[in-house]
Design a binder for these strands. Structure first.
Lengths: 212, 212
DNA sequence: GATCCTTACGAACGGATGTTCGCGAGAACT
DNA sequence: AGTTCTCGCGAACATCCGTTCGTAAGGATC
């Protein structure tokens, strides 16, 4: 019972490629044609079998109401995250409001939502430089950030230095009336500045290192 | 022209939530009901507008032929990658053949394919321990690996140590007839073993660090 | 006011699509 | 041989669903 017939495998493959191509499921007649099956009822029969075996889910009476279930019967929830730019690149970074961002984002990455712990409005930046190397963040890494206004001492945050007109990723410490932005790199010195010169853009959530 | 009317925003949101819920696009009448619109032609009109603005793509004469386009008008190509287990966890890891892997994988992550440089059969492992800390790979990181049989000196590879029955992530060096597995951690010593005791499972491609 | 554009409404048309039913071939079992 | 189950075929049916057409309200322009 656990085994799939050749026709069922063929249908499953067709489902995957069709959805991968068009982003919506095929109709039964699409499957019929795509798999060279003579009758719609044969397709229906095999779809029922696939549903019995837990590989797909069907909504009755609904056109194209087919859903491929993931490896575990679950569908991974994915989030598209805009890569807004490079950090410490000399340009202010537009913080995405809670609104939908405009389509002017250069690039995006897609990750499962557990990679960002289901947080909302997460955005990403490319890291330039090795100022956070001791926190295991390298040049070229992509960091995921959560928008926030305030920060606690020791948080890794992206801050906009108004006087320099640039954004940088550092650990954040409040010291009296001043702010210390501490790189995680023993060869670099912290930046001291006033509280009203910094604008916190986001707090570090997670990071990704692309292949070299 | 770039602005979206309230109704168009509402439809777009409905599209997203419907697809997120059911995994197939809504019909025009689904949208009509979901957005409390009085006529199907109004839905059609606004869908045309959304298509003109490049936010969706429609297949004419096809039921539910709606596809949400990504931020840049492109659909991101995503890959589902199985997380096969934890590395250095004492268990041999089944290397995925080029066949479809069985549905017994515990967990998966979804990433854009440029995150793995379009490679095939990539799989992932959770890192236990800090033996690669100097290569900026921490405990808890997820590493993406590409199946391979051989390795070059200095490659970061996951190897199965047959005598210990465990898998570990180390840098690989061939030294005479022996193999040196070098941790990237100054407090740890390399493992020396014979070539026939190691079985290379995969080569390091990239890594991801979840939020703490 | 005249004209045009955008947005909206409601109904009807026709094609697309899931479902069902009768029929039959082949295999396994009694 | 008889029975049952699986798998497949073809056609018909009812509904689902995209499309189109006539109409109209509101705003902008001249």
């Amino acid at each position: 019972m656990a085994e799939l017939s050749g026709k069922q495998l063929q249908i499953l493959d067709f489902l995957r490629s069709f959805i991968g191509d068009k982003d919506y499921p095929p109709s039964i007649r699409d499957i019929q044609e795509g798999c060279a099956i003579s009758s719609t009822s044969v397709v229906d029969y095999n779809l029922r079998k696939l549903e019995e075996k837990g590989l797909i889910r069907r909504d009755r009476e609904v056109s194209r109401g087919i859903e491929i279930l993931g490896s575990r019967g679950r569908r991974p929830r994915v989030v598209e995250i805009p890569v807004l730019g490079s950090i410490a690149a000399g340009q202010p970074i537009p913080v995405p409001s809670s609104e939908r961002w405009a389509n002017d984002t250069e690039d995006t990455v897609v990750v499962t939502d557990d990679m960002i712990k289901g947080r909302a409005n997460v955005f990403a930046l490319r890291v330039k430089g090795t100022s956070m190397i001791d926190d295991l963040i390298d040049d070229g890494d992509i960091v995921f950030l959560e928008p926030c206004q305030a920060a606690q001492d020791g948080d890794k945050v992206a801050v906009w230095l108004k006087d320099r007109g640039e954004v940088t990723l550092k650990r954040f410490y409040r010291e009296g009336g001043r702010v210390r932005l501490q790189p995680a790199n023993s060869t670099m010195k912290p930046i001291y500045t006033t509280a009203d010169n910094v604008e916190i853009q986001g707090r570090f959530i997670s990071s990704f290192r692309p292949s070299a």
